[in-house]
Design a protein around this nucleic acid. Structure first.
Length: 208
DNA sequence: ACTTTTTGACCGGAA
DNA sequence: CTTCCGGTCAAAAAG
């Protein structure tokens, strides 16, 4: 039903799975302007397919920048989206924000090739987009046949401001990175909540 | 020597 | 039809 609509939109254009993306930044702005944790409007989500957006509002005492994760994949379902909303809230509650910060940090000299979501990413572009005060970086999953891409907006402070995932990993995670000793040993799994089977990740995310 | 990042230019789509 | 903007490509540089 709704899911069919999504697929119809997504499949023909892997790179532009959502034609209404232009209005997306407005939503984010609106959310940030209100200062509330409103991630997406459930009503709209139910009728209009849009990338999964999750905006994290970290505690001011620790992070000064909100973090948003947008999931855009073929296999996206309303149910999945709803779960994402819940999960992200849990993530905040569990102070997993730290993990998001780590995404942007180099790991053992390996720049951001391996982020904490368990996949290898290769940066192929960066741009300053309108409507966003932060530069947007474009990454591809470095796995040979994996079509997944992601857009990451980082603040001047180096924090992740927004992450937009596009596509679905068709391979298992790479070797998990070392656990950060200074923080809870938790992987950032919110980003791959759509792994081929679309299961494991979501579970991880929900687990605190 | 190899892989990844950086950066400017180019292309296509939307307004 | 023109302009603007986002996304991608490709060459050069860095690690």
């Amino acid at each position: 039903m709704q899911s069919q609509e999504k697929i119809t939109v997504v499949k023909p254009v892997p790179y532009r799975p959502f034609s209404s993306f232009s209005s997306f930044p407005k939503l984010l702005k609106d959310c940030s302007t209100t200062g509330s944790m409103q991630i997406t409007c459930p009503e709209e989500t139910a009728t209009v397919w849009r990338p999964k957006v999750t905006r994290f509002t970290p505690p001011p005492s620790d992070l000064s920048t909100g973090i948003a994760v947008t999931m855009t994949q073929d296999g996206g379902l309303d149910a999945t989206h709803e779960q994402m909303v819940i999960d992200t809230e849990q993530v905040v509650s569990c102070e997993r924000m730290t993990e998001f910060n780590n995404i942007n940090k180099p790991i053992h000299g390996v720049k951001n090739r391996l982020s904490y979501d368990g996949y290898n990413w290769r940066k192929y572009g960066q741009k300053q987009v309108k409507g966003s005060e932060f530069p947007r970086s474009y990454y591809k999953c470095s796995y040979p046949t994996c079509p997944v891409k992601r857009k990451v907006e980082t603040t001047l402070d180096g924090q992740i401001a927004e992450i937009v995932y596009n596509g679905e990993h068709n391979h298992p995670k790479t070797h998990p990175p070392e656990k950060p000793v200074s923080s809870t040993s938790t992987e950032i799994v919110a980003t791959d909540a759509h792994v081929s089977n679309g299961a494991g990740a979501e579970n991880h995310l929900g687990v605190c």
